[in-house]
Structure formats: C-alpha cells, structure tokens
Design a protein around this nucleic acid. Structure first.
Length: 468
RNA sequence: GCCCGCGUGGUGUAGGGGUUAUCAUGAGGGGUUGUCGAUCCCUCGACCCGGGUUCAAAUCCCGGCGCGGGCGCCA
C-alpha cells in the first residue's frame, strides 16, 4: 500500500511507520516521535518502551547515561497507554532470538532516546487491556470504545470500513455517479412501514429520516442522472439483533434510464472493485485481524473476490427452494431468517433475490402488469442482495408513472396527498430509474468476519445504548 | 413484545449451601536483563441490589436492575 504523505508536525518529525520504512536511511539521524506507551520493560539501568501511534509501532531504548536519571526513572514508572514524546537517534534493532529453524525476521529499527517528555499520563488500571489477550465483553468494549479502538484488530476494522467507502466511491465516480446529501430532518413519514424518531423542528413536529429514498429520486428527476449518498438513517424499531441498529449509515445510489437489472450490475461491479482493491492493497489490515483471531483460536478470514455475475435467485425460485427443504411457506410470504438459512446453504456468498411480490414492496417500486407469478401474483422489480443469510441491500426499479404511483399509495392504504412533495416531482416528466441502498456496517461485517454489527460501527446506537 | 440463559477482583473466568473463593490478565513493590506486549519473587483486589428459606447463602427461592443469545418487528 502506498504510504500516506505524512508531513512532520509540531510534535514529531516522523511517524512510527516511517521509522520502520525509512529506517535504513535514517540510521544515526535524530528524530522526534510520539505515541502511546503500549508496554514498558526494565527497572534498572535500561528501559524499553513499545511505542504505538496510528501508523505503527517502534521500540524506544533508554539507557542510563544516554538520558538523565530523572527522565529514565519517569519513563520506567510510566503507566501503560500514557502518551509520550521521545527524541533520539535511529538505530537498527538487535534481532530477536528465534527458535532453531525459524526464519529470521526482516530488520526493524528503534530509537535510542536522548530525551523524553510525558505528554499525558494514563490512569490505572485500564478498564480494558489494549495489548492483552484477555477476552473483553462487547459491552465493556463499547463503554470504553476509545480504548477498544486502540487494539490493533479493532483499529483494522475501522480502517477497512474506510477503505470500503473509499473504493466504493471510487467505483461509482468512475461510472459517472455524483455524491449528494439529502436532508435528515423531514416533515412527514417519508415512506411508511417503519417507526420514525419524532423531533421538534422549532414550533413544528418533524422526524429523523429513515432513508434518503425519496430525495435521491427527486435528484434524478432533477436531471442529476446518477447520484449516490453515504449518510445516516434512523429507525425507531425496538429490534435487538446482531444486525440491526437504530442509527446506521446507508450507502445509496439512484440512476436514470435504468431498471433493476442495470443497478444490480452497478452493485456487483462495485463490490467486486472493493473486494479486489482490498485484496491487492490492504492485506496488512486483514493480517492484523487474523493475528488477533489466531490468538483467540478463531478461524482466519480471507478476502474472497466474488466472481461476476452474482447468482440471481428469483423470489419465486427461492420459495420453491425453501419448500423443497420441507418448510411450510407459500408464495407471498416473507422470507424469514430461518428460510434465508436454506438459501444460504445453496448460495453462501453474495446473491441477489429479484422479483419480489409487489404486495411486499413499497409503493415506489415499479411493476409491470404482464409480469406475474405462476399463481398469478403481481411481481415487482424490487430485489435484495444477501450475503449468506444476511440482507445487505434492498433496491429496485422505481415507479415513474404518476398515476401508477398514486394508485400504489392507495393500494397500500397511504394518502397520496401526504406525498405530494414527492409525487409533484413526477408530474413534469420523469425518467425510468432504479437504485439501491446498502448497509455499510453489514458489508463491513462480511469483509471483517464480524458477527455483530456493533463491531463495525464506531459508536453504535441501539435500543439500550445512546452513549458514548 | 416473546423464549432461553447469565451477573464473582479493573478485565475475563472457575466454583454452585459450611472453602483461606480458582486461574489468567492487571495494579503496587523488588530482583535480573539489549530486552521482545521478557522473566523471577512478594503484595493488592471480587460474589449486582433488595427480600425470603436455612444453624449456615456467592450457591436455593421471589422481586428488581443490568447483560447476552435466539426470534419477532423492520426501505
């Protein structure tokens, strides 16, 4: 991976990663570095500090005579995770003793300190061990997320989350999409179907947005052609599962002159680009996760680049598949979690489930009267993207015919007048269009092998947790 | 909202009517050391809250609070 261009700051001349990567040229040169003291060893005439910053780690060596006695003692008594600044010269580290037959590791560099400054002393004991292998419960971790994040594998998860967004953006921009932002304060229940968080907007009642859906469509109706948005969505549902949160980040696209199949193509190409870019550029982050998993006796993760196209399992076929497995289900029923398990046995990776019954899809999803199931039920152009049993995406072609939109609302017991701000957008010419919304945290779960969506959200908001 | 389970040092655990309450990690002190989140010695620190049963409760019962898992609900 190309190293970021980190200029020197007022506190340091080099990052710790730079000490390692430029070590050979830096030997005997004076540098100033900063970091968290991960481990401090030595009580006598010498002292070693394993220093860690956001880029890597570096050992600092202090020796009586090289620094004044007071400094040496203060560093020897430093508590773990305190921050400190060291000035000294770069030297090649003594190679560690390795067991016979083991490969000799590549050379590492260290800083032999001539002066040290404690920046902030950490209190003891720590509420959770940053460098310890002792298991920590998720709740304790989330209560102390600032410390939890210092753990290497946790840090790697959020680095990877950033990479997913970076490569996703990169891909969409390549396909001609523009990034937009839609309002999160809305006047009315935008879509129905889910509970919204009410709020006060000056003297009026308002709500937090559950989805950018209607607004991204209005952007396409406005001629922006292809748009995407990465932003928060809020749902006031009292769900309590490993995959639901009340605030989450939704990665949405919407594009003109396209149907459901067209945007499934965008989706699978984007995921392919994300996965292959990470496999090519960021395997160090995957390694960080795997070294933790090894220590915990967990199976290692692997970035398996999916092949294109992703399988399409039409809703009707999915129902037959579930029936064949002996489950009691009829066309028109929802596919529940234990049903999704059956589909996942056949398709463990990414797969689309297109052509849901129109009755199960929201009013803005497109349907063609000529497309019906064998039993005569109306099919829609709505689809899901699943990975194994978990839903990643919901999307579809949108209804662009004003009269049909109004009828759909009536069919679903909604009042078209409540959606006039939306329907008005269609009255003056509307392109056929389609789009989807992807759960960023859920996709990050898949990539990082996390079993709980809270692992992949910095400060998750669920039914119980609103802090920190 | 439903079902099941669990609350023991800072963290993670063992124990499951009478124990000096286990182990790891940690914290404090010390020894040794150009070491490898080293190592050795000493020390410290805990049974969620309230009520009940019992000679005796961390352990059994009831209630509360907190948490976990599964499900439902959910563009």
């Amino acid at each position: 991976m190309a190293e970021a261009n980190l200029h020197p700051t007022s506190f340091r001349s080099h990052s710790l990663a730079q000490i390692q990567s430029q070590g050979e040229e830096l030997i005997e040169q004076e540098v100033t570095i900063c970091g968290f003291a991960q481990a401090i060893r030595g009580k006598g005439k010498i002292c070693f500090v394993d220093l860690r910053d956001g880029t890597g780690t570096c050992q600092v060596f202090l020796k009586q005579g090289m620094v004044d006695d007071e400094t040496l003692a203060s560093i020897q008594n430093l508590s773990r995770e305190s921050t400190a600044q060291f000035t000294g010269t770069v030297a090649k580290k003594r190679p560690p003793k390795v067991a016979e037959g083991e490969p000799i590791p590549p050379p590492e560099y260290e800083v032999v300190a001539t002066s040290a400054t404690i920046l902030a002393q950490a209190e003891t004991p720590l509420p959770l061990g940053v460098a310890d292998d002792v298991h920590v419960e998720l709740d304790t971790r989330l209560d102390n997320r600032f410390l939890d994040l210092r753990r290497k594998h946790v840090n790697a998860i959020f680095n990877l989350r950033g990479k997913i967004l970076q490569y996703g953006r990169e891909h969409l921009i390549n396909e001609g999409f523009k990034e937009i932002n839609s309002p999160k304060i809305i006047a009315a229940a935008a879509e129905g179907g889910t509970n919204l968080f009410p709020m006060k907007y000056f003297e009026r009642d308002a709500y937090l947005s559950q989805s950018p859906q209607l607004y991204k469509q209005l952007a396409v109706l406005g001629g922006l052609e292809r748009v995407f948005e990465i932003g928060p969505a809020f749902r006031a549902e009292k769900h309590d599962t490993y995959r639901h949160l009340n605030e989450f980040v939704s990665f949405d696209i919407e594009m003109a002159w396209a149907n459901d199949e067209d945007v499934m193509g965008v989706q699978e190409r984007m995921i392919h680009h994300i996965w292959s870019s990470i496999a090519n550029n960021d395997s160090n982050l995957i390694d960080d996760i795997n070294s933790f998993r090894r220590a915990q006796d967990q199976e290692e993760i692997e970035v398996e680049i999916p092949t294109l196209p992703f399988p399409r399992v039409e809703y009707s076929d999915a129902i037959e598949m579930i029936k064949a497995a002996g489950q009691d289900i009829e066309w028109g029923d929802d596919i529940e979690a234990h049903h999704a398990d059956i589909i996942a046995e056949h398709h463990p990776g990414f797969h689309f489930i297109p052509r849901w019954p129109m009755s199960m899809k929201p009013f803005y999803i497109y349907h063609d009267k000529s497309e019906t199931s064998q039993s005569g039920g109306q099919l829609s152009r709505g689809f899901d993207l699943n990975y194994g049993r978990d839903e990643m995406t919901s999307g579809g072609q949108r209804e662009h015919r004003t009269e049909v939109l109004k009828q759909n609302l009536l069919d679903m017991d909604l009042n078209p007048e409540d959606f006039s701000f939306y329907i008005d957008g269609f009255r003056f010419g509307a392109p056929p269009h389609a789009g989807w919304g992807l759960g960023v945290a859920r996709l990050t779960m898949v990539l990082t092998g996390s079993r709980n969506v809270r692992e992949t959200v910095l400060f998750p908001r669920d039914r119980r947790r609103c802090t920190p």
